[in-house]
């Protein structure tokens, strides 16, 4: 789904940060050389088409407690069942099947480390599979968006 020219410029210019001032869309309009109404219409169109995830603050969930990246090596015939078990936890916000010996990867987030440990222990007891537990040690880049490059 290619972006229209204004949408592409808006995302490229403001995916890393938008103005924190009164009338932010007016300031964005001045940068984009269009009207404030066009900025708002552009955001609405992108939201309706699903190409805008949202506009607003992105919070650092690491600061809200503890998190870790976990993985399980699940026999292929059990993958669906184990994946559903994992996704049931409210502590799991991302759960991906990946092509590897460790084929189920998920992010666990909770109020503190003992809480996460209980979830990991429970999963191990339930599934008989020992999770990899790979908490972040250092962040070199955290989800600040990435260059969109030239339209295909």
């Amino acid at each position: 789904m290619p972006l229209l020219a204004l949408e592409q410029r808006l995302i490229e210019r403001f995916q890393h940060g938008m103005p924190i001032c009164a009338e932010p869309y007016l300031e964005m309009a001045q940068v984009l050389d269009c009207s404030e109404a066009q900025v708002i219409a552009c955001l609405q169109q992108m939201a309706e088409r699903g190409s805008l995830s949202r506009i607003g603050p992105v919070f650092d969930h690491h600061r809200a407690g503890a998190s870790t990246l976990a993985a399980l090596a699940v026999p292929a015939e059990r993958l669906q069942q184990v994946a559903e078990r994992v996704s049931q936890y409210p502590e799991v916000n991302h759960n991906y099947a990946r092509e590897h010996h460790y084929n189920l990867w998920f992010v666990l987030t909770g109020p503190d480390r003992p809480h996460l440990q209980r979830v990991l222990d429970e999963l191990e007891a339930d599934t008989g599979l020992t999770p990899l537990d790979l908490p972040m040690l250092t962040a070199y880049r955290i989800d600040l968006g990435f260059a969109l490059g030239d339209a295909p």
């Binding site: 789904m1 290619p2 972006l3 808006l10 995302i11 403001f14 995916q15 890393h16 940060g17 938008m18 924190i20 955001l43 992108m46 088409r49 699903g50 190409s51 805008l52 995830s53 949202r54 506009i55 607003g56 603050p57 992105v58 919070f59 650092d60 600061r63 955290i142 989800d143 600040l144 968006g145 990435f146 969109l148 295909p152």
Partner: peptide, 15 residues
């Protein structure tokens, strides 16, 4: 506590 305040695109929908 806030990483950024921004227009966050849905990259899957952008191809």
């Amino acid at each position: 506590a806030i990483r950024r305040i921004a227009a966050v695109p849905n990259h899957y929908r952008l191809g």
